Computed example of a mutant assay.
Amino acid sequence: MDETPETAPGGRNGQNGQGDESGRAGRHPHHAREGRWTRFRKGPWWPASVLVVILAAAAGLFAGSYTYTMANPTPHQLPTAVVGSYEEARGKEFLAGLGKALNSSVRTHAYDSRAEAMEAIEEQSVFAVFELSDDGRKVLLDLSSASGASVAELLEQAAPAVGRATGVAVSVRDVNPLQDGDPRGLAIFYVSLAAVIIGFVGAIQLSVHARALTPLERIAFTVAYSLLGGFVIAAAVDWLLGALDLPFVESWSILALTMFASGMTFTMFNTLFGRWAMLPTWGVMILLGNPSSGGAVSWPLLPSALGVIGQWLPPGASVNAQHTAVYFAGHQHAFPFLVLAGWALVSCAVFWIWRHRHPGGRDKKPPELAPPADA
């Protein structure tokens, strides 16, 4: 009687059965755990788990960075101008009392005339002018809310209190007030924030939905949405809402340059770090750049290091340029434009030099469209 392969002692099933049993019996637990870890790393749960940790850390850092810089603003250096009888005994007593009340943060710069001091306000070198008269018994405090609403509010509260304590009559007036539609001086911060966020979100969307763009086309479309987006932001804030009376062409140019610099910064990081490009972009633009921009809290009230660093990042440069354009016409500085242009040019250069590393382009097919290896 012929034995079938299924029942033969030396048949395939018998051998495999014994081999499987012996293999399972002899398999070390370490190898089993290693196999589970490998499957986990190659499966969809691994990137999802990494994202859970990253998002939790980002939430804490986001809340911490904004709370650290904005929740309790403390004066570190308040540059002010003094003219008149500031060398008289009563004047010295008042200025010393003001410095003590503000933790010695007031830095006074003497000017020969009131006109020179007011020019320093226009140049944003000082935030207020103390004009002392009658041998230091009277003080006229000229504030500039447009220079920094939070600083002006601080001086407006501190100076009269010190005057009462030292027997000095203090009068306060605002020589450069904020616009009616922007009573807290935050509108410029909001429009700059919009330009920064939409700038890099636009680059993200191009990477997702227009993956096949060539490097030159990617730069061109970044320019296109920056120009159109900057125009719409300025039109909405000025023409539609009337919150700010903008010097339209200049403000539009600043917003467009901000969006382009932000978008190309993400493109640069996408070239260098691939799918993790959002991490450095979020860190530079949101965690560090926006709180230290001086838009929500004036730079003299920020921690010293952040006040300096923020001016070299796109959000701070955008706020500075826009703030000067709106409130200090004719006194625009080149520095914030150089910062924005520098970020844009460096990002474009890095992207262009290492463009072969960028995940987009027409010569690169998504994994699901790639031909099988056997073909």
Rank of each mutant, 00 (worst) to 15 (best):
A89C: 09
A89T: 14
R90S: 09
R90N: 08
G91T: 11
G91P: 09
E93I: 08
F94Q: 00
F94I: 04
L95A: 11
L95R: 11
L95I: 11
A96H: 08
A96I: 03
G97D: 13
L98T: 02
L98G: 02
L98K: 02
L98E: 01
G99T: 03
G99I: 03
G99P: 09
G99D: 14
G99K: 01
K100Q: 15
L102S: 07
N103C: 02
S105H: 11
S105D: 07
V106S: 00
V106A: 01
V106F: 01
V106D: 01
R107I: 14
T108C: 01
T108N: 07
H109E: 11
H109P: 04
A110P: 10
A110S: 12
D112G: 14
D112M: 02
S113K: 11
S113A: 13
A115V: 13
A115S: 14
E116S: 13
E116G: 10
E116R: 08
A117I: 05
M118W: 02
E119C: 00
E119D: 11
A120S: 14
I121T: 06
E122N: 15
E122D: 15
E123V: 05
E123R: 15
E123K: 14
Q124E: 11
Q124S: 09
S125R: 14
S125D: 14
S125C: 01
V126P: 04
V126M: 06
F127S: 04
F127K: 08
A128H: 09
V129C: 05
V129E: 06
F130I: 02
F130G: 01
S133H: 02
S133F: 00
S133Y: 01
D134A: 10
G136L: 01
R137D: 03
K138Q: 00
V139Y: 00
L140S: 13
L140W: 05
L141E: 13
L141C: 08
D142C: 03
D142H: 11
D142A: 12
L143M: 13
L143N: 08
S144T: 11
S145I: 01
A146C: 14
